[in-house]
Amino acid sequence: MTTDPLVSTDWLAAHINDSNVKILDASFKLPGVLPLPKDDYLAAHLPGAVFFDVDAVSDHSNPLPHMYPSAEQFGRDIGNLGIANSDTVVLYDAGGWVAAPRAWWMFLAFGHGNVRILNGGLKKWRAEGRAIESGEVKPKPASFKASYDPKRVRSMQQLIANVESRAEQVIDARAAERFEGR
């Protein structure tokens, strides 16, 4: 396995039935955009893929959306998706958003380095005529121990301090319209 954060559709097709390769559909849409990502997943997803719901795998005590959960909750939620620490996790999304890379970073922040993103996502997989499934995949729960690495996440206070210090480069990966508030 490579350390490249991306895997090709050819690689995944060759390893899709490996018992230690777990596939997650991490698709996300802004609130109010329909159909819901879960409904899209139920209609069509990669064989064996489980839905990664960023709203469910978040800190529910925080009023802000999608905030990182505790390591304990992340471990429990990811274990319930059938993923163990020894597994290779392959994430994809339906495209048009940075959902799979965001989930990839979450896995890294919680100590799981064996995580990859499917290059081209669901759109490329389908364009190549590869198999898809519908309906929900119910994984067998596994044990996943998460350990939070605070060096991979910045607080609002750290971002504000960085405005003055300029010690780190900040990149906003949102689409131009969203970045500009349109």
Score class of each variant (00 low, 15 high):
Gly135Met: 04
Thr88Arg: 14
His112Lys: 06
Arg126Glu: 05
Ala131Leu: 15
Ser155Cys: 04
Pro139Arg: 06
Glu72Met: 05
Leu108Gly: 15
Pro63Asn: 14
Ala103Cys: 15
Ala84His: 04
Asp55Glu: 15
Val137Ser: 06
Ala99Tyr: 10
Pro65Tyr: 14
Gln157Glu: 15
Asp77Ser: 11
Trp125Cys: 02
Pro37Ser: 02
Leu36His: 10
Ala44Tyr: 00
Leu91Asn: 07
Ala103Asp: 11
Ala84Arg: 01
Trp105Lys: 07
Leu108Trp: 00
Leu81Glu: 03
Pro37Ala: 07
Gly121Leu: 05
Arg116Thr: 13
Leu46Phe: 08
Ile78Tyr: 01
Gln157Thr: 11
Met106Glu: 05
Arg154Val: 09
Asp55Ala: 15
Gly135Phe: 05
Lys123Trp: 08
Asn62Tyr: 11
Gly111Ser: 03
Ser134Cys: 08
Asp87Val: 01
Val115Ile: 02
Leu64Met: 13
Leu91Lys: 12
Gly113Trp: 00
Val137Asn: 06
Gly95Cys: 02
Leu81Gly: 10
Leu46Arg: 06
Ala109Tyr: 03
Phe144Trp: 01
Arg126Gln: 08
Gly120Cys: 08
Ala100Lys: 10
Ala43Trp: 00
Phe144Gly: 02
Ala161Glu: 13
Gly32Tyr: 01
Gln158His: 08
Phe107Tyr: 08
Lys140Ser: 15
Tyr92Asp: 01
Pro150Gln: 14
